[in-house]
Design a binder for these strands. Structure first.
Lengths: 233, 233
DNA sequence: CGGAACCAAAGGTCAGACTTATTGGTCACA
DNA sequence: TGTGACCAATAAGTCTGACCTTTGGTTCCG
């Protein structure tokens, strides 16, 4: 699952990261490197490497004579995929899912509009293929198959936008969609209207109709917001 | 400037990070921890900590018997403020500035809409104050004063949205605005139309008019896109 | 009561030895 | 000749223990 699994310091992070992001230590709490090393039964070197990573994520701050202090949530690098995974695994998963869905609702329509202008012929083909895959898996409880194509679809859109900041949100969207299917609101079969919208977006991109691609994607994200009871009156 | 200045490993990062993000090492290049430690005249422990940080940013991957391999740009954590700073300092600064501005154009209007619904009375006051500050500094080449209030304005909007993912983009917007003023396109005085739009956004938020706040902010971001010759026909 | 000197605590750095996984080559066997 | 198993070289991973540096608190003196 997590890439940090490599090495001892990764194991430490797999425990300490979720603890911090879950709010187990209030902001300002002080941890001592030696104590942590003892707790996880690793050497100080390994513990220091773990602390450095947490520090680069702005989860903690290390200062001489003081120790490793936990930073308030507003300082965290909430776009770090690792941090996102930790937060999604924690108690405030619903809240995190809402934040990410709102982000999606802002980014994806614009990305779709750009994709309509920049997508290669190959990407257009991929998009159509994904949309067809969604249609094929939209009935009879084939949730996994549907999810697979749904994730691929949105990844292609974000990549085809040609904006590297958008492209990097592919993982985020994947997490949101996967989370929705596996844990949260997801009825037996996906909303037929959503399926149709995806097909139409693929169509609009293929026909280079940026305005239509953007508007249709906006409708998709509105649906996603409604699923989470995030109203937009 | 950079927070990594603390410690020896920070100094290593200040050199190695920009090198990698500038593309000095093609993807797949292999670096050896020992050689790097020798080059920077630091111990292996310090070098390892630096590598761990680069690894957490997905700039490199460390594997046994192989070394530290540089990852392709598409893998980088481009939302890490540190990575953003490094890329903005490098050769493809214009490209990075465009990416970020497009991201702004997607996020800020939605954030403004949310701010109109969620902003506290205090935040509304701050917003108005910032807008007035922009007006006061909009003539006579008071670029620094204008920039200060401009940055503050957008930070308040993003924070007041109530979405922590949006709030975290405050630093990004600050970098973009600062970069625009100090290095790139910026005429003697800011566009009067933009100044007016900011005042109107503050007004709309104060009056809880989400749709208007969103639309006005969209006009602001369109202006930002046009400044960088990113057309939207 | 205030400031300067002192001290201890905690992280920062270093050097060296040892461990372990991975890779690429070699050699034997089919 | 091809293919499998084995082995050795390699570079990261880990641990230990020593020493340095900064800094917050305490104490003592004016």
């Amino acid at each position: 699952m997590s890439i940090t699994g490599r090495g001892l310091h990764g194991h430490v992070l797999d425990t300490l990261g979720p603890e911090i992001t879950a709010g187990a230590y209030p902001p300002g709490s002080v941890l001592r490197t030696d104590e942590l090393a003892q707790r996880f039964d690793v050497s100080r070197s390994v513990m220091r490497e773990a602390v450095r990573v947490l520090e680069s994520m702005h989860l903690v701050e290390s200062r001489r004579r003081v120790g490793v202090t936990v930073r308030p949530a507003c300082d965290w690098n909430v776009y770090d995929p690792q941090v996102i995974r930790w937060r999604l695994a924690g108690a405030d998963r619903p809240r995190q899912l809402r934040s990410l869905t709102v982000l999606r609702s802002a980014v994806e329509p614009v990305a779709a509009g750009l994709a309509a202008r920049n997508a290669t012929a190959e990407q257009c083909a991929e998009l159509t293929e994904c949309a067809l895959g969604m249609v094929a898996n939209s009935r009879g409880g084939q949730l996994e198959g549907y999810l697979f194509h749904d994730v691929a679809f949105h990844r292609v859109i974000l990549t085809a936008s040609g904006n590297d900041m958008f492209a990097r949100l592919g993982d985020v969207v994947a997490e949101v969609l996967t989370g929705r299917t596996h844990h949260d609101v997801m009825f037996d079969d996906p909303d037929p209207a959503a399926v149709t919208l995806h097909v139409q977006v693929a169509e609009a991109v293929r026909e280079r109709d940026a305005a239509r691609a953007e508007e249709l994607t906006r409708q998709i994200t509105v649906g996603a917001l409604q699923e989470l009871d995030i109203l937009a009156p």
